[in-house]
Design a protein around this nucleic acid. Structure first.
Lengths: 200, 200
DNA sequence: ACCTGAACACCGTTCAAGT
DNA sequence: ACCTGAACACCGTTCAAGT
C-alpha cells in the first residue's frame, strides 16, 4: 500500500492482471472470461491490458502456461515415494491429475482452449510437454523396476495422458457418475492392467 | 425452388439453419460460431433464428444432438462383424471414434462445449448415452465370448470412452504426433491389453 | 405464423490524448 | 513508460412493426 489511493500508474499491472484472472477462473463454474471484466476487477480501463499483452489470446496463453506449471507441480507432488511402484501408487498419480483438473476446471479447460492456442505461443507446448514428462519418467521408472511391460514408454505415457485427459473432462461434464461407481479409479485401473507385466 | 426469388417466409428456416450451421462447422478449423453469421449465410436477418430457437445455446444443443447421433452412427458402422472380436476389430472401433472426432473437430468440440451445455437440454445427455451404449454393448459381447475380462462392463466401457475422448482431443490439438508414432493405435492397444483376458 | 429493422447492452481492439 | 477516453466493428438478445 503506497498510502495514496488510486495512483495513475498501477505499478505491476501485468502481474496483477494474471493473478486477478486466476482468481476469476477459480470462482465461477462455466464462466466466460472477458478482458473487460478483468480490467474492471483490476481497477483499470479496459484498454490498459493492451500495454502488457498483445491481445486476449496472449493473456490466455500466459494463463495456460501457469496452468501447465501447476499441473506439473500437482503431478510431482503425487509422485510415489517407492520407485518399485505398486499399482496403488501409480493410481494415486492418475487420481491427482483428475483431481487437479476437476477442481481447477475453468483453468484446465482454458489450458486446452483454442482461444489460448490462438496466440501460437511455443512456450505453451513446452510446458505441456514438461508436465507430460512427469508421466513419462514414471513410466520409464516402472519399466526399469520390471513392474511395467517393456514397450515404447512414450506410447504408454501417451495412453495414460489421453486416458487422464478424457477422464478429467468427462468427469467435469458430469457424464460418468451415472455410469459406474468411482469412474476415475476404475478407468485408470483398467488402463494400468494393460501396462503391467502380467503376474502369476 | 418456388420460382419467386427471396420470399418473405423462408419455408423451413429451422432446418436450413441447422444444415447451414453444420456446413459452417465442417469448414474452418478453430472457427468461432456466431448466430449473426449463420443468419447471414442463411439469407435472413439476425433476429430470425429466435423464432425457431430460444437462444444460441438452444441451437448449439440441437447441433450437439445431431453430432452425437452421427457419432453413434459412425461407431455402429465400425462394429465388428465377428462377435468373437479379435483385438484388431475392437481397435478398429476405437480408431473410427478418433477419426470421426478429428475429421469433424468443430462439431466434436461443440458436442462437449459448455455453451451447448448451457441449454440444459436433457436430450443431449440421452444421445450421448446412446452413443456410449454402442461401446458398452461391444464390451458386454466381448465378455460373453470370453475375450474380455469379466469385470464391470460399464467400468470398462467408461475406460474406453475416456481414452477415446482424450485421444481425440489431444490428437486434434496436435500434441501427440511428436511423442510417439501412431498414437491412437498405440494408446488404444495399451488399454485393450488391460481389458483382455490374459492369454498363454 | 414468420420475418424485419432498430435498439440495447455487451465484447475485443485501436489510438490520440493525458500523467 | 504507462494509463485513459472515445471510437469502431462486432456480438447476443429483444420487440414493435411489417407481410
Amino acid at each position: 500500500m503506497k498510502g495514496t489511493a488510486k495512483p495513475y500508474h498501477h505499478g505491476d499491472l501485468r502481474r496483477a492482471l494474471l493473478t486477478t484472472a486466476m482468481e476469476m477462473l477459480s470462482e465461477d463454474q462455466g464462466w466466460q472470461f472477458t478482458l473487460r471484466e478483468l480490467a474492471r476487477r483490476a481497477g483499470v480501463t479496459h484498454a490498459a491490458p493492451y500495454k502488457h499483452f498483445d491481445d486476449k489470446a496472449a493473456l490466455l496463453a500466459e494463463l495456460a502456461l501457469l496452468g501447465f506449471d501447476k499441473l506439473r507441480g500437482a503431478l510431482r507432488a503425487a509422485l510415489p515415494s517407492d520407485p518399485a511402484m505398486p499399482r496403488e501408487a501409480f493410481l494415486a498419480m492418475g487420481l491427482a491429475y483428475v483431481a487437479f483438473g476437476t477442481s481447477n476446471i475453468n483453468l484446465y479447460r482454458l489450458m486446452w482452449s483454442t482461444d489460448a492456442r490462438a496466440a501460437n505461443d511455443p512456450r505453451v507446448l513446452e510446458r505441456a510437454n514438461a508436465a507430460f514428462e512427469v508421466l513419462l519418467n514414471l513410466i520409464k521408472q516402472g519399466q526399469q523396476t520390471g513392474w511395467l511391460s517393456a514397450r515404447d514408454p512414450a506410447g504408454q505415457a501417451v495412453a495414460c495422458w489421453t486416458q487422464l485427459h478424457g477422464l478429467t473432462l468427462l468427469t467435469a461434464d458430469g457424464l460418468l457418475a451415472s455410469l459406474t461407481a468411482d469412474p476415475a479409479r476404475v478407468a485408470i485401473t483398467e488402463l494400468i492392467m494393460g501396462l503391467e507385466v502380467p503376474r502369476a
